[in-house]
Amino acid sequence: MGVYNVHERLLEAEPREVGALVDSLAGDGDALWPRAAWPAMRFDGPLAVGATGGHGPIRYAVTAHVPATWVRFTFDAPRGFDGFHEYTVHAVDEHRTLLRHTLAMNARGPARLTWPLLWRHLHDACLEDSMDLAEAHWQTPAHPARWNGYVRLLRAVAARTAARRRRTAPAPRERLTR
């Protein structure tokens, strides 16, 4: 199943300013990823080709990066996500820039069910939060994203599952001291 999913926002900012947001991804000063409400984007090193990581259970590698312009992440997990997602910066004029996030993949195997039932809804909510965060750097978002009831339900189920796992996980073994 082919998936092509785009989120974009026209920002009252210069392309270099919007590009700086993209380049901040996964760093200490990340100004684009909505990590207050979603699992943080993290990599095993700085944002550069070859870095691996992801957010939550979504794993990927940086496979292309043109500073202040474009970053592409190619999926490693979940199983059946064959493709990429990317942020791109498009100059409209000197003072307006289009920030775009594109996800393009072939969903196969279990992803043929999990993408439309689970991941698409969470992805859309997270990316709209990211676009709101970007817009908020220059003005109050004109139409702030709101999670629908299904997204709130999925997040509540995920939170309960994570809490149950924490309660039932074996305690870490204490080190013996001599």
Score class of each variant (00 low, 15 high):
residue 2 G to H: 11
residue 3 V to S: 11
residue 4 Y to T: 13
residue 4 Y to F: 10
residue 5 N to C: 13
residue 7 H to E: 03
residue 11 L to K: 04
residue 11 L to W: 12
residue 12 E to I: 04
residue 15 P to I: 01
residue 15 P to C: 13
residue 16 R to A: 14
residue 18 V to E: 01
residue 19 G to S: 13
residue 19 G to L: 05
residue 20 A to H: 13
residue 20 A to G: 06
residue 21 L to G: 00
residue 22 V to H: 01
residue 22 V to P: 00
residue 24 S to A: 12
residue 24 S to C: 10
residue 24 S to H: 07
residue 25 L to R: 06
residue 26 A to Y: 00
residue 27 G to M: 00
residue 27 G to A: 02
residue 28 D to F: 04
residue 31 A to M: 05
residue 32 L to E: 01
residue 32 L to R: 00
residue 32 L to P: 04
residue 34 P to R: 03
residue 39 P to R: 08
residue 39 P to W: 15
residue 41 M to G: 02
residue 42 R to H: 14
residue 43 F to I: 11
residue 43 F to N: 01
residue 44 D to G: 09
residue 44 D to N: 13
residue 45 G to C: 10
residue 46 P to H: 06
residue 48 A to Q: 15
residue 49 V to C: 13
residue 50 G to R: 08
residue 51 A to H: 03
residue 53 G to R: 04
residue 55 H to F: 11
residue 56 G to N: 08
residue 57 P to N: 05
residue 57 P to Q: 01
residue 58 I to P: 07
residue 59 R to L: 06
residue 59 R to S: 09
residue 60 Y to F: 14
residue 61 A to T: 15
residue 63 T to D: 09
residue 65 H to C: 00
residue 67 P to Y: 04
residue 67 P to N: 05
residue 67 P to R: 05
residue 68 A to V: 15
residue 69 T to V: 06
residue 70 W to Q: 14
residue 71 V to Y: 02
residue 71 V to K: 06
residue 72 R to E: 09
residue 73 F to V: 08
residue 75 F to R: 00
residue 76 D to K: 11
residue 77 A to D: 08
residue 77 A to V: 07
residue 80 G to R: 02
residue 82 D to E: 14
residue 83 G to V: 12
residue 85 H to Y: 02
residue 86 E to Y: 01
residue 86 E to R: 04
residue 87 Y to V: 02
residue 87 Y to G: 01
residue 87 Y to H: 15
residue 87 Y to D: 00
residue 88 T to M: 08
residue 90 H to T: 14
residue 90 H to C: 11
residue 91 A to Q: 14
residue 92 V to S: 12
residue 94 E to C: 04
residue 95 H to V: 03
residue 97 T to D: 11
residue 98 L to V: 14
residue 98 L to H: 15
residue 99 L to F: 05
residue 103 L to C: 04
residue 105 M to S: 08
residue 105 M to I: 00
residue 107 A to M: 04
residue 108 R to M: 05
residue 108 R to K: 12
residue 110 P to G: 09
residue 110 P to F: 02
residue 111 A to K: 05
residue 114 T to R: 09
residue 116 P to C: 15
residue 117 L to Y: 08
residue 120 R to V: 04
residue 122 L to D: 11
residue 123 H to L: 13
residue 124 D to A: 09
residue 125 A to I: 03
residue 126 C to V: 12
residue 127 L to I: 03
residue 129 D to W: 12
residue 136 A to N: 12
residue 137 H to G: 04
residue 137 H to C: 08
residue 138 W to L: 00
residue 140 T to S: 12
residue 141 P to Y: 02
residue 144 P to L: 13
residue 145 A to C: 12
residue 146 R to V: 10
residue 147 W to Q: 13
residue 147 W to G: 00
residue 148 N to K: 09
residue 149 G to K: 09
residue 150 Y to T: 03
residue 151 V to W: 07
residue 153 L to Y: 14
residue 155 R to E: 02
residue 158 A to N: 08
residue 159 A to E: 11
residue 160 R to D: 02
residue 164 R to F: 01
residue 164 R to A: 15
residue 164 R to H: 08
residue 164 R to P: 04
residue 165 R to I: 05
residue 167 R to T: 11
residue 168 T to I: 07
residue 169 A to Y: 05
residue 169 A to C: 01
residue 170 P to K: 15
residue 171 A to V: 10
residue 172 P to E: 03
residue 173 R to K: 07
residue 173 R to H: 07
residue 174 E to K: 11
residue 175 R to F: 07
residue 175 R to P: 07
residue 175 R to G: 05
residue 177 T to E: 12
residue 178 R to P: 01
